[in-house]
Write a protein that binds this DNA or RNA. Structure first.
Lengths: 358, 358
DNA sequence: CTGAAAGCGCTTACAG
DNA sequence: CTGAAAGCGCTTACAG
């Protein structure tokens, strides 16, 4: 239980001043080679490492960034954290992870306590409650203090800062276009309530695409799910009341749930109904049939967000905030017809790229 | 871009000393009520918050704990982080997340840089490479420095510290017993290579259970998968060479992969083959049929680990290190016969407890 | 009731 | 070539 060694102790032990030790360990030209050598050896033998807190206090930066997520146990968000951590670590930064747990209050408290010295900047995706209340004062306050923030995925126009998003509307439009080109005409959308930016944008994309094809989108073919309740009952009802030949779900769970319900009714996927999900995760890869889905490239979003933040942290000049749009891509799997030469009977092989088991 | 306000600035503005401001804001009895009131108001108006770095330097604790994970994008590990974060936050601690990425070198570097001032303690699950090399000097060094460590899930006997594990052997034994009671006699195990503590223990449990039932476990009925390669080909081969009526996979992926392969061969799950997986995650819940699996209660493991660490951080007395065993539980779903009155035709309902979509 | 001083562990301009 | 001093932002025993 020997305590960590400090410059002071080394100085005392070596019979020199603290400044000398400090300079010696930084290989300063000011210090004699012999002295340096002696001090270096002693430091090494005692496993000396400068105290990072003292360094932080000195130069006003902690080399830590905070990520505030609505949820930790979520495939997409973990991917984002993974990307952030990778880039941050490379630049010598550590990553503090906080969950807002979809709560406005917790988001506010987290930001308030962290903003004062503990970290250099934020990367945040807003909680549902925050988007519902449309109260962003805590974000603005932190920005006013001069602390850089990057928002990702769930962003809002009201705040002027760097942002990383996918083009939700365009991604959905692309997916619907693809279903259309497969001959599907009764395409249902399972979305979330409009207060969530991503749900709203995805619904817009759906309507856009149908309008483009000369179809007047019917309110009845859009289901908006209250995320705080169970999704199975409403989806079941939605399936009963309509006779879709294709379904688009704004997340994996909705798509997979719809698929299970249709399968229980004896329908064949993708022959009778094609299904596409959103945010390509482990579920999409391993469901039966595997799920065609819109890949949001979470890791890339995280990397981009980290890059943007690190640039702000490094730069002195004030470039205007920018919004980076990460292009989505459709990952074709068994739940949909394939582009060009598709053979519906051939189940796609299980994707070789497996999640590492623990 | 106004900078954060400090005691010094308040003192100057109010025409008093720094100490007076400090005491006033802590509502010290030493300061006059009037002065306090004035200072409090000014501080509030300017949104003063004590600099946490300065506080850390002062009292030698950062109120931050580091979690080192083999992988960030992993359902079980996210659950653990979720549990840690919850308990830590409640106690006023923040959580730094680092990925070792299953690499020994990255684990060593992470610990070395963090141990010196940035955090108060570690919660760690060893990387595969570390378990393979059996080199734990970096862990021991940190402990020798007097910094508390809690290991979870992938732990080793060689290190004496607080630990949180599940009883892997017992959990598997229980699962095999259950398959046995369903009349299954040709039970295959898909495990990982023995250098991973959890793989080894689970294999032991499997053998124990078979021996108990008077069966001499056959080497051929155990498949040990090299985790760095694709798992599908070996599992496929394993299924070809054997005629199992039940399969136990030491993780979700192995179990689901086996299930898909058997289904493609036209076998019915669970009527012809029952399947049980490990680490109850989102895949188990949404596969078809849904997967019976051993729930390791990741969130609870995280909470327990956090509690143990916080206790060490608070206490001065040195209790001997303890190992907490979190009981696993079998979650019965569609891929296996149910205990007691099971009806194989009834697909279980989709689990109502959904992962929150983003 | 208020303030000067020392100290947490470090860095760095400045003096010698 | 080496060291004393100031400072990062705070707290707290001590003096007045």
């Amino acid at each position: 239980m020997k305590d960590k060694i400090t410059l002071k102790q080394i100085a005392k032990e070596m019979g020199v001043s603290i400044s000398t030790v400090s300079k010696a360990l930084k290989d300063s030209y000011e210090i004699g080679e012999e002295t340096k050598e002696k001090i270096r050896n002693y430091a090494k033998a005692n496993n000396y490492r400068p105290n990072r807190i003292a360094l932080s206090l000195k130069d006003g930066r902690t080399r830590t960034i905070a990520v505030i997520l609505p949820e930790i146990v979520h495939h997409f968000f973990s991917q984002v954290v993974d990307g952030i951590e990778k880039i941050a670590n490379k630049a010598g930064y550590n990553v503090l992870v906080c969950s807002s747990n979809e709560s406005f209050a917790k988001e506010v408290v987290n930001m308030d306590t962290l903003a004062h010295g503990k970290i250099d900047g934020f990367i945040i995706s807003l909680s549902k409650e925050t988007q519902m209340k449309q109260d962003y004062h805590h974000i603005q306050e932190v920005i006013n203090q001069g602390m850089p923030i990057v928002m990702f995925d769930r962003v809002v126009d009201e705040i002027d800062c760097d942002k990383v998003v996918v083009n939700d509307a365009e991604a959905v439009e692309q997916a619907v276009d693809y279903l259309w080109s497969n001959g599907r005409r009764r395409i249902g959308l399972i979305s979330s309530l409009d207060y969530l930016s991503v749900g709203r944008l995805r619904t817009e994309g759906y309507i856009q695409s149908l309008l483009k094809h000369g179809l007047n989108p019917d309110e009845g073919s859009i289901l908006k799910i209250n995320e705080f309740l169970d999704c199975e009952a409403p989806i079941q009802e939605f399936m009963e009341q309509n006779d879709f030949d294709a379904i688009l779900g704004v997340n994996e769970i909705y798509a997979i749930t719809a698929m299970k319900i249709l399968q229980r009714k004896g329908l064949h996927i993708p022959q009778q109904v094609e299904i596409i999900g959103f945010s390509d995760g482990i579920l999409s890869r391993y469901s039966t049939p595997s799920l065609t889905s819109v890949d949001q490239h979470g890791k890339e979003m995280g990397e981009t967000a980290a890059h943007l933040l690190l640039r702000r942290l490094a730069d002195t000049d004030d470039e205007p905030p920018q919004t980076r749009v990460i292009p989505t891509s459709l990952k074709f799997r068994g739940s949909s017809g394939r582009p060009a030469n598709f053979s519906p009977s051939a189940e796609l092989p299980i994707d070789g790229h497996q999640q590492q088991p623990q």
